[in-house]
Simulated scan of single mutants.
Amino acid sequence: MDLTKKRKLDENGVGLTVSDMDPSIPKLTPEDVRKIVDRIVDKGKLIDIVANAASRHVDVLDAVRSLADSDSSQRKLFIRGLGWDTTTEGLRSLFSSYGELEEAVVILDKQTGKSKGYGFVTFKHVDGALLALKEPSKRIDGRVTVTPRSSPH
């Protein structure tokens, strides 16, 4: 990095914490910040702060994801209204555009080998399911399907 650019960034306070800008201010430890956060009464505002930070900082998003992803019911969708010739590959192809998939399966009739008209999609991350749910009806193989969460909470 060009040191003159870095100096300008530092002079403007970009990328610096309050204690970096003023060495007389002691640095807060994570435990200190936890004490401050613990005293916040309005949890809705705290959630807004976390959501805002997660949308701007990948490390915060990763931490939020790791907590949210532990509940697989939040990542699993039930797809109903599938055509008889819809395949698992077709389902996987459509839903992978919303995020990385852990599993996608069309439930087949054992005797005929044809779709029973429904299936399941499980995303690796909860945000894939969230994006897919923004459009709850999808056209798959010429049929309009309904896509709710598998186990609503």
Results as ranks from 00 to 15, higher is better:
D22P: 15
G15L: 07
R139H: 03
Y98V: 00
E11P: 00
D141W: 14
D71Y: 05
F78Y: 10
E100V: 11
R139D: 08
L94V: 10
W84Q: 07
L61E: 03
F123K: 06
H57F: 14
R149E: 03
E102Y: 13
L9S: 14
L67K: 14
I25R: 09
N52G: 11
P152M: 03
V33I: 08
S150Q: 15
D48W: 14
I25S: 09
H57Q: 06
E11F: 00
M21I: 10
K27E: 04
T147S: 06
E89C: 13
K45M: 02
R92I: 00
K27H: 13
E11K: 00
K138P: 12
S72T: 01
H153L: 10
K134G: 10
K35R: 12
P152A: 12
R39S: 13
R34C: 13
D22A: 13
S97P: 06
K76T: 06
L67N: 02
P136C: 06
Y118S: 02
S55I: 15
G15P: 05
V60A: 04
L61D: 09
D22Y: 15
T29M: 09
T88E: 10
L9E: 11
P30Q: 02
T87P: 07
T112N: 07
L108S: 04
V60N: 02
F123W: 09
P136E: 06
P152V: 05
I107A: 15
H57S: 02
T145P: 03
S115T: 04
D109S: 02
N52W: 15
Q111E: 05
P152E: 13
T87L: 01
Y118I: 11
D141E: 12
T88Y: 13
E103D: 12
D42I: 15
A129C: 05
I107P: 02
E31L: 15
V144Q: 04
S70E: 06
R92P: 00
F123D: 06
R39V: 09
P136T: 00
D59N: 12
G128W: 00
L94T: 12
V64C: 12
V144L: 09
E103Y: 00
K76W: 06
G128F: 01
G81H: 10
I25D: 09
V14R: 10
K114S: 01
M21P: 07
P26G: 10
D127H: 09
S150C: 12
D69V: 06
D22L: 14
